[in-house]
Design a protein around this nucleic acid. Structure first.
Lengths: 133, 133
DNA sequence: CTGGGTGCAAAGTATTTGCATGAAC
DNA sequence: GTTCATGCAAATACTTTGCACCCAG
C-alpha cells in the first residue's frame, strides 16, 4: 500500500480517499480498464459512482498523472505515468506489459523521410505471451 | 472513381452500391472516422443509415478489407488494408499520414528481451505536420 | 430464386453533466 | 471558509440489434 498523497498533489490533484485507492489499483494492476477499475473500487467504496471513476480518470489524464493505452480490438487501459516505454499485449489472455525499447533509430528514420515534428510515440506490440503460446 | 467490386468480392463481401461508395471514400480520404464517413455517404445516399455504416465497417474489419487505427485522444479512423506501415498524426489539425518504417531492428530487440511472440505492430507517431508547425 | 444487405426504430452500452451535499486544505 | 470532489439521477453519445423489405449474384 503506497501512499500517493504527495504524488497526487504534485499533479494538482487533491488527495481524496477515492483517488488514493485509484492510484493503488493502477499501481498493483499495472494496466487496468475502466470496468475493472470500477469493480476494484467497489470493494473499498461500496457506493462509489462510475461517474466518479470517469471524472477522476479524465482529470488525471489532463494532469498527466495517468496515461491511456489504446489496445487494438479492446478497451483502453490506464497506467500511472512512468518514463517512456512501449507495450506488449497478449491477444489471447489480454495481459499488458511494459517494455523499454530504443526508439532513437526509428525516430531519426522519421526525420529524414518526413517533415513532421514528432513529439509522442505510441507503440503497441500484439502477440502471445509465454503462457498462451 | 475506382471500381472496388472485385476487391470486395475477394474479401467475401457483396458489392453493393453502399460498399462501393464506402470503399471510394476510404480511398480518397486515406483515413476517415465514422462520423465523417457517414456525412460523406449522406451526400450520395440521402437515406443511408448510420447502422449500415457500422455494420459494414465491422464486417470489413472482420474480413480484413479495412483496418482500424486508434488515434491518441481522438476517434479511431479507418483505412483500406494496405501493406504494413505506421502512422503520423498531427495533434493540431488531425491529419493522418502513412509512413513506411523498418521495424526489423525493433522487433529483434523485442525477441531478445521478452518471451512474447509478436504478430502485430501498431505504431502511431504524434506531432506537428509541416503546415501546423 | 436465395442469401445477404439496407433502412428504420428501438434497445443497449458507454460517457458526461448538473446539482446538492460533504470533504480537503 | 473556500474550493473542489463525491454520488446520484438524468442527459447525451455511441454502437448494436431486430425486422420487414429489397437487391446482388
Amino acid at each position: 500500500m503506497i501512499n500517493y498523497t504527495d504524488e497526487l498533489r504534485r499533479h494538482n490533484l487533491k488527495a481524496t480517499p477515492q483517488r488514493l485507492a485509484i492510484s493503488n489499483a493502477l499501481h498493483s494492476y499495472g494496466h487496468i480498464n475502466i470496468d475493472t477499475l470500477y469493480e476494484m473500487m467497489l470493494k473499498k467504496f461500496s457506493s462509489i459512482s462510475l461517474a466518479t471513476i470517469y471524472k477522476n480518470i479524465n482529470l488525471m489524464l489532463e494532469n498527466s498523472y495517468v496515461q491511456e493505452v489504446k489496445i487494438p480490438q479492446n478497451k483502453s487501459v490506464y497506467e500511472l505515468t512512468k518514463s517512456y516505454h512501449s507495450h506488449l499485449v497478449c491477444t489471447e489472455c489480454g495481459v499488458v506489459e511494459d517494455i523499454k525499447l530504443n526508439m532513437i533509430p526509428l525516430l531519426s528514420e522519421v526525420t529524414t523521410s518526413t517533415t513532421f515534428e514528432i513529439s509522442k510515440t505510441d507503440l503497441v506490440l500484439s502477440g502471445l505471451c509465454k503462457k498462451c503460446q
